Simulated assay, not measured.
Amino acid sequence: MPIVTDANVHAAWGDVVEASLRDNGHEPHWRILPPGEKTKSWDELAATVNWLLGLEVERGDHIIALGGGVIGDLTGFCAAILKRGCGFIQVPTTLLAQVDSSVGGKTAINTPAGKNLVGAFHQPALVLADLSTLETLPPREMLAGYAEVVKYGLIDDADFFAWCESNGAKMIASDSALREYAVSHSVAAKARIVAEDEFETTGRRALLNLGHTFGHALEAETGFSDALLHGEAVALGMVLAARYSARKGLMARASAERVARHVGEVGLPASLAALRLECDGADLVRHMLHDKKMDAGTLPFLLMKGIGKTYLDKEVSLDDVAAFLDEELVREPA
């Protein structure tokens, strides 16, 4: 059975998975990749597909994606295009993957033009989220995943955002019961939205991208590197979405700052100025022009009319966004 993972996950869980598969009559074949966002590349896609072909994987076989969002995205895309579609199983080992990227069937790689611009919708046959894998997750990765938990409260569940304010720090630290609730609630929320709009045709599924337009621009500006993890970028992106919504008079400033306060209190980036980027707002907007959500030359933005009241705005001025970002680039952290 082919298993795609990264070096960090293999070191922590490789022996456990190997033994489990062999005990149940399966012969594991491992492809161990470098950790990090740069693994989601054309080169690794081609090399992994060729490796799978060398194993003579058939359409009825299943490929295991053992790891975080990077491994899940790459492996899922390989499965989508190999022999016009093979089965795959998501075994997410990070909080971010367990609550978001492993569910819903989006697979992709990054290109020099931007993040996740080449991919396919390809649903996994099974998602197996074992919470014990979170025990070996570095604290920074745990925090990065928490951004996607908070997102579900901001989209359409103000009560869950309040739960995050009360319980988020304890959940991140080690509370297993709170982790189970956070993961199960988040997966249920995502599954509900995906079921309404699996291929993102009506706009409902687009709500799951809250914070991502700002966040992907920040990831591009920092070179898709460890300088800013995906979840960290999403967290800051949600803060920026809230503050921009307040700037436009859509959302109370106090509510926007409530979002920023919670994001900052748990230890995620809540200040654009604190990144000390050598760019201006126009530079960040140029990254946004490569966003896959561009439609007829316009870029829809996910904005908020309040906490739990996210909506898709198709009439946002990119010049105004650039001006807003210029302000945030020099804004003193609270």
Rank of each mutant, 00 (worst) to 15 (best):
M1V: 13
I3A: 00
T5C: 05
V9I: 13
A11F: 11
V17T: 14
D23K: 12
G25Y: 09
G25E: 06
H26E: 12
H26G: 02
E27D: 08
E27M: 06
H29T: 09
W30A: 12
G36S: 10
K40E: 07
A46N: 11
T48D: 15
N50I: 07
W51I: 02
L52K: 00
E56W: 06
V57F: 00
I63E: 00
G68A: 01
G69M: 09
V70L: 01
D73P: 02
L74D: 03
L74A: 08
T75D: 00
T75N: 02
G76I: 02
F77Y: 15
C78M: 10
A80L: 08
G85L: 10
G87S: 08
F88N: 03
I89R: 06
I89Y: 06
V91L: 12
L95M: 10
L95W: 02
L96D: 14
A97C: 00
A97Q: 01
A97H: 01
A97K: 00
S102K: 05
V103T: 01
A108P: 00
G114F: 13
K115Q: 14
N116G: 11
N116C: 11
H122V: 05
L126W: 10
V127G: 03
V127M: 02
S132I: 07
L134S: 10
E135W: 12
L143Q: 13
V150F: 09
V150H: 06
Y152Q: 10
D157K: 11
D159C: 08
A162Y: 06
W163V: 03
M171H: 04
I172A: 12
S174T: 06
S174D: 12
A177R: 15
A177W: 12
R179H: 08
R179E: 08
Y181Q: 15
S184T: 02
S184Y: 00
A189F: 15
I193C: 10
E200M: 06
E200S: 09
L208R: 06
L208I: 06
L210T: 10
L210N: 11
T213R: 03
T213E: 06
H216A: 04
A217I: 12
T222E: 05
D226M: 05
A235G: 12
L240C: 07
A242I: 03
Y244N: 04
M251R: 05
R253K: 14
A254Y: 09
R258H: 02
R258C: 01
A260S: 11
V263Q: 05
L268I: 07
L268S: 11
P269E: 00
A273V: 03
R276Y: 07
R276Q: 13
C279L: 03
G281Y: 06
H287S: 05
H287I: 03
M288G: 05
H290V: 02
D291S: 10
D295V: 14
T298W: 04
G306A: 05
G306K: 04
G308S: 01
K309W: 03
K309H: 13
K314P: 09
L318A: 10
L318C: 07
D319I: 11
D319G: 11
D320E: 15
A323P: 07
L325Q: 10
V330G: 08
A334M: 09
A334S: 12
